[in-house]
Each structure stands twice: as C-alpha cells, then as structure tokens.
Amino acid sequence: MRSSFNAKAKRGSAVAEVDRGVVLSQPIGFASVSPLLLLLGIFFFGPMVALTFAIFAGGLQGSSGLFTEVLTNDLFQTVAFRTIRISLFVTIISVVVGYAMAYAMWRSPPSMRSIALALIMFPLFTSIVVRTYAWTAMFSRNGMINTLLLKAGLIDKSLSMLYTEPVVLIGMVQVMLPFAILPIYTTLLGLDLDLLRASAICGARERQTFAKVVLPLTKHGAGVASVLVFVISLGFFITPAILGGPQSAMISNMISTEVTTFYNLEGGAVMSVLLLIVTLCLLFVAGKIGSIAAHYRK
C-alpha cells in the first residue's frame, strides 16, 4: 500500500515541478519552444547562411572583390542613396502626420477614437498589392487625378505621374502611417490625464501643456516609431516596384532584378547582406536608445 503510493508520487513528480504560475515542467518548456526555434533556425536563419555561402563560395579574396565591386557600382550607389532618401522622407512625414493624428485622436471623445482607430486598422488588413493598385488607379494617365484636373481645366494634357518619387512617397506613407500612429497613440493613452489637469491648473494653455508636458513624455514613443518606420521603409519592395518603376527603384527592387533578370546571385547576395547589416545596426542602436531612455526615466 505504502510503496505503491510512493511509486505514484514519484511518477507525479517526474511531470510535476509545478510552480506559481508555472504549469509545465522545464523539459516540456524546452520541448514546446523547440519547434519554433527549429523552424526559424532552418528557414529563417538558414536563408541568411545560404546568402553568406553564396558570397564566400569564391573564397575570401573573391568575396572582398564582390563587395568592392558592388560598393563602387554607380547604379548601386544611386539606388542606395535613393533608398535612404525615400525612407528618410517617409519616416519624417509618417511620424509628423502620425503624431498629429494620434494626438487628435487622443483628445477626441471615445466614440470618435474608436471610429478613427478602426479606420487606421483597416489598411493593415488590406493587402499592400491592392492598396498599391488603388494608387495606380489614382495616378495613371487616365486615372482619377488626371481626369479631375482635366475636367477642372487646370491642365490640358494628362500628366504622367506614375513612376516618380513623390508618388512612391505617397504610396509608402500610406502603408507606414498606421505603424507610426499606433505606437504614439498607445504612449499617449498611457499618460495620466491628471498631469494635463495639473498643468491646466498651473495656468498653462493647451499649446504650453503640449510643449511642456505631453511632448517630452511621448518623445520616446515617437523615437521608437521613427526607427521602426525607417527600418521597414528600407526594405520596401512592392510599392516602389509598381508605383516607381525602374526610375524610382529601391534597393529591394535592385536586388530582385540582379537575381531574377541578370542571374547575378552573388551581387544580389552582397546587397542583401549589406541591407541586413544596416537594418540590424539600426535596430541595435534603437534598442540601446530604448533601454537608455528607459533607464533615464527611472
């Protein structure tokens, strides 16, 4: 009787190790995260390793040759510079407009807030291809904008607006704006409304309260949003491909052309690795800034 009970107890403890808030044992924990680690290890990090292999297949000499070749290439320089320029503009516009929008939503009554929130979420659910197509319908030669301008008599011949940088900007900002609004709005929601009341009691006008209280407390959220928008912008493919054409191609488009049109896998790999390095460095710096800011605020 006694011994059989002990056996049961032992078996129980083999799967037990239940702790406060802890339902599963450590081995089961490892088992449960391993499919994820395996999947990402092979099919997310694997591709990056494959890229590195493609570059270093020709030995160290050959690979450094590849890098100098790409870095000194005129077209690459133009595209890289354009990518940075467009991403910078997208970031500035998105964060400024996004901040204004988030602030406007925050100061609105709850019903207005939820309507605005739904309107912001909607594009997140619609495919980027569909949204980009919508912009071509707006900007093409016989598109809506040209038709309206012609009807209004502002122009007498339809303009060719597609395949220009401003149109790419318009399309990209539309995609990135929700990514800027949402983190800033969340930071604003975290603000204690009593702070505003305190500021108003002290005699501050809305503008002063904004400058002296709201902005300093949400700067950090805006900073995080900026890095996020910039990093994602760097990697844009679909919008510049459709709205930009070859004249306004960004780095992802160039990589794609190198690999699929010119079968230059090594060149594409080098550019991909450069893009990856820049992305990771930016995220690392952002993470550092984030933790420094968090530290500073304590």
Binding site: K8, A9, G12, V18, D19
Partner: peptide, 22 residues
C-alpha cells in the same frame, strides 16, 4: 503542491505528500 519544497516534508492524513502533484 504548486511550489516544490527546498527541504522538509508535508503530510496530509497519514500520507507523505511532499512529492505528490497538486
């Protein structure tokens, strides 16, 4: 039984339940 004991024993009734799951 939600926390393991570092040392010591627990009896409920006649049984030593120190290692028995909750």
């Amino acid at each position: 039984g939600f926390e393991r004991t570092t040392s010591g024993t627990i009896h409920i009734g006649e049984q030593d339940v120190t290692l028995v799951p909750p």
